[in-house]
Design a protein around this nucleic acid. Structure first.
Length: 308
DNA sequence: AAAGCCTGCAACCGCCAGCGG
DNA sequence: TCCGCTGGCGGTTGCAGGCTT
């Protein structure tokens, strides 16, 4: 029968209906979360086994945190593990109760897009509006000050790394990047409003980054930068920047995977959890995975120290 | 109020590894 | 050993709803 054959071959796609979910749940209750392909072969649903499995894993299995935003702690776990093991979403999700690989993947994707947008805005600004940015060249490269308010500026929850102020130093020649904690005096008083429970954590954890953090006290600022610094304590200092750029810049550091505690492996010999390994991974280019590949294209080439 | 933009999420696609015949 | 099937995983896409202008 041609019609019947068509019927059998028909594969439904798109959003799941409640009835389909019910059928799928019945199957799982009967046989457990397996034999996905038999659901179609038995004619229960016109969905592929893969589709059924995905629906179960991502939406129907019990104890899922559906519709619940990632907590600060969950964000921290994802950021840390991503830096450690890369885009192993299933693995990362296994560390988070009630989260699926799809959840983690979507979270990270959103985060990456946000970061890319922020940095794009920032780098464009650095070129066209030098007098309005906090990007200033230093002798051994250039320094991108990541002094910022937390992401709370935009009502976001990712504020884990937001309480410490950092300066990013790039060096074209040696291809390293280092985080330099800014002197606390550089932090605008207004930031105090955004202190979170992680403040205590910040105060006790060492920065885990390839380069030994050091205070950058000998930065030479341009005239424009000096002018800005002179006004840093003004209540409306942030208004010096236009709202978009201001909020963007203050978000930069929020996204930096630094200063995080280290995980011990939950089981097996995954090897996760040693500081050495984390540092090794960051000594590679894992840190740069956070940035769009062309992120530095818009930045001015620093003068080589050898040419000075 | 409406149009355009942005974001988060659900679902699909393609690749790959494991397994059994 | 080969081959096909199945499930797992990461990347990508499309859409709906919220937000902004």
């Amino acid at each position: 029968m041609h019609v019947k054959n068509e019927e059998e071959c028909y594969i439904k796609k798109g959003p799941w209906k409640a009835e389909e979910d019910e059928v799928l749940l019945n199957h799982v209750n009967k046989y457990g979360p397996r034999d996905w392909s038999s659901i179609r072969s038995k004619g229960l649903l016109h969905r592929t086994g893969k589709s059924c499995r995905l629906r179960w894993v991502n939406k129907l299995q019990p104890n899922l945190k559906n519709g619940c935003k990632f907590s600060v702690e969950e964000e921290r776990v994802v950021i840390e593990l991503q830096a450690e093991i890369g885009n192993k979403w299933a693995k990362i999700a296994s560390y988070l109760q009630g989260r699926t690989d799809n959840d983690v993947k979507n979270f990270w994707s959103s985060r990456q897009k946000r970061l890319a947008r922020i940095l794009h805005t920032t780098t464009c600004t650095s070129k066209s509006q030098k007098n309005k940015t906090k990007v200033s060249e230093v002798q051994d490269g250039f320094t991108l000050e990541a002094s910022k308010l937390s992401s709370s500026m935009e009502g976001e929850s990712s504020s884990i790394m937001s309480q410490q102020s950092y300066s990013l130093s790039f060096n074209q020649n040696s291809e390293f990047i280092k985080m330099v904690p800014l002197p606390s005096s550089d932090i605008n008083h207004a930031e105090q409003e955004f202190i979170t429970p992680f403040e205590s954590y910040k105060n006790t954890e060492q920065i885990s980054f390839p380069q030994v953090p050091e205070l950058k006290t000998d930065i030479t600022f341009s005239m424009e930068s000096q002018d800005l610094l002179a006004r840093i304590d003004e209540p409306n200092f942030i208004d010096v920047f236009d709202p978009i750029h201001a909020s963007s810049e203050y978000e930069i550091g929020v996204e930096l995977p630094i200063g995080l505690p280290f995980f011990e492996p939950l089981s097996g010999n995954s090897g996760i959890g040693t500081r050495d390994r984390v540092e090794n991974s960051k000594n590679s280019d894992s840190f740069f995975d956070d940035f769009p590949v062309d992120i530095f294209d818009d930045m001015e080439q620093p003068t080589s120290p050898s040419k000075l």
